[in-house]
Each structure stands twice: as C-alpha cells, then as structure tokens.
Design a protein around this nucleic acid. Structure first.
Lengths: 165, 165
DNA sequence: CAAATATTGATACATTATATCGTTTCACTT
DNA sequence: AAGTGAAACGATATAATGTATCAATATTTG
C-alpha cells in the first residue's frame, strides 16, 4: 500500500494531480481497513466507493445509482444507501449534509476534526484538519458543559482553480 | 425593543429561562429588520416564525405545517418553504442541514461565524460565535486560495441539562 | 454438510422540497 | 376611490432523498 500520504498534501485537489494514484490509494486503504475491522469489502460496496473515488467531487445517492446503471444493472436505492452507510461507518467516505451528497475521504487519519471546503463552481471538495479549531471546540464545549459527539464543518465558496481561470 | 441581548448571554438555553422574553425579542427583531429591509412581515411569515420561536428546538418544515394546521388551516408545503426561505434570507432563522430542520436565531448580530450546538437528547440548539475559529477559517482559506461564501458548523452532542438530570 | 449470519433484491412507502400557474392581495399612483 | 403592477398565495402535481419490510440468496462458521 502507498503510505506516503501524497494524496493529502495538496489540501485542495489540484487540476493536474495524479488522480489514478488517489483512486488506488482510496481503494487499497478501504481493503486494509475492512480487513482490520473484520468487515467484508464486497463488490457492491467496492463499486460505490470506486464511483465516488473517480473524482474529488461529491455525488448524490441517485447519481451513484445512475453510474451503477451505466456500469452493470441498477440496484434499488436501498442497496446504495446500505453501502454508503457501511462506508460512512468505516470513515471511508463523508456525507455533505448541506447538499445531500457523499464523497470519498482522502485523508489517512481521522481525528474527527475535519473541515470540508466545497467549491460551488466545480464541486471539488477539499479537507483540512485544524488543531486550533479542535482546541476551540474543546474550550467552548467545556464552557457550555456540552459533551460533543460529532462535529460537521462545511465551508462553501470558490476554489483557487476556479478563481484563476 | 428589548436591546439588552440577555436572550443570548446563556449560550445554551437554560431550563428555567424566561422564554416569553425570547419569543417577543425574536418577533420584535423580525419586525424591525423587515422594516429596515423594506420587506413585508406578513401573517404567514410571522406565523412560521412564531412557531419556531415557541422553543429553542429546531423543527422540520412538516412539523411547522402540522402546527399551522392546529392553529388555523394547513397551507400547502410550498407556502411554508416560501416563508422559511424569506426568514432565512433575513437571517432570522437558520437551517440545520444535518437534520433538515429550522430554528429561530437568538443572536442579535450576524458575523456569519456562528456555530450550532445541537443536543441529541432534548433537541435544544445553542449558538456560539468564536473569533478564534473565524480567524482560523481566514488563515486556512488564505492558504488554500479559497474564497469563502458560507460556513456551516453543526456540533451534536449532549447539553449540560441532559447530562445532569 | 448444516446451521447461523450477513447480504441482496423487490416492493412499497415515507420524508423533504420544488415547479407551475391562475388568482388574490397589497402598496402605490393618480 | 379606482387603476395598476408587483408580490404573495392556493392548489395541484411532482421531484428528490431516504427507509421499512421481508422473502430469497450468499457467506461464514461449527
């Protein structure tokens, strides 16, 4: 497995990057993580992840269904949602709540303190991880007496590529 | 109009707080802001906001429809969505993307750098505003070359009241 | 192999949100 | 007060997203 994490160094996916490398990295990591967790990385789940990994854009469940239809035959919606739920559980994909879409995670570690940067123009999604922000959530939750279960940060705007055409 | 902002000082709504005061504050502010913007705070919009302001919990569009039905007559869904869109536009309510719900804003100022704290147990929603986090989004967006349009932060967990029953 | 477990396909349905369009209401002008 | 244009509404239909159920099939385990 490729472990050099080069996939994540440009925080926002660049135009000319070697995407084949991202794809194989995402899929190989999925295999490893499934094995670790004693879960089964069966074809339908793999296909959903493959489809998400074809780009750094997020896709809706029904977009995925259409691409599965184009590849082989269209499963019922519930099948896709089951695979998505599985992949979400392993942290291999994320859900963009603001758009009802899903996309393949490109980070190797999971501190739950990820932020998503979504370009409104091209649809690309980048991920960052900020210790400063994590510390601030800690401070705020302490002061509120709030026990945090999950944090979701979605930042929308225009990416550097779309700003400089 | 009540301008002492006491409504927002306990960042997470407390059990015994004077909610009648919150309600009237929310509605009065809506009137003021509509007048300022030259918009019309007509009955249907007012009713939607009133319903949201009855608690610090967020409600789904169809929850609001049911409560309107209980009050008078049930409008079509689009009517509620129109009012919600209007209120969102004026920043009088927020949308919880993770839950497809809406709730009445309880803050007097709008720096777009609000965080939502949602209790999974009682459904209460609190709001905070952190300059540290705002600064970090600035730093990160600069380093990514990303032009930010909107930031949505939803933190789920358990509030202090539900932790100490 | 048999039993237990996990996954699938098929069907139906639930929930959330939007499109369209003719009518009504409102604010403003005369 | 009546006319006028813009805004809002009601009614209807439908789109988009997501779940529930359950029998049938595949996979793992004993």
């Amino acid at each position: 497995m490729n472990t050099d994490r080069s996939v994540e160094s440009p925080h926002f996916p660049q135009v000319g990057h070697d995407h084949a490398r991202c794809q194989s990295w995402i899929l190989q990591r999925a295999e490893v993580r499934c094995r670790q967790e004693g879960m089964r990385f069966i074809p339908q789940r793999r296909e959903v992840l493959e489809i998400l990994a074809t780009s750094h854009r997020s896709l809706g469940a029904y977009d995925i269904l259409e691409r599965m239809q184009a590849r082989a035959r269209r499963p019922p919606p519930a099948a896709v949602y089951r695979s998505l739920e599985f992949l979400l559980g392993l942290g291999l994909i994320h859900r963009m709540a603001g758009r009802n879409t899903y996309f393949a995670c490109t980070r190797s570690d999971h501190d739950q303190q990820i932020q998503f940067w979504i370009c409104r123009h091209c649809g690309m999604v980048g991920e960052t991880e900020s210790p400063v922000v994590a510390g601030e959530w800690q401070r705020l939750s302490d002061s509120l007496g709030f026990r945090v279960s999950s944090v979701n940060v979605e930042i929308e705007g225009e990416c550097i590529t779309c700003r400089n055409p």
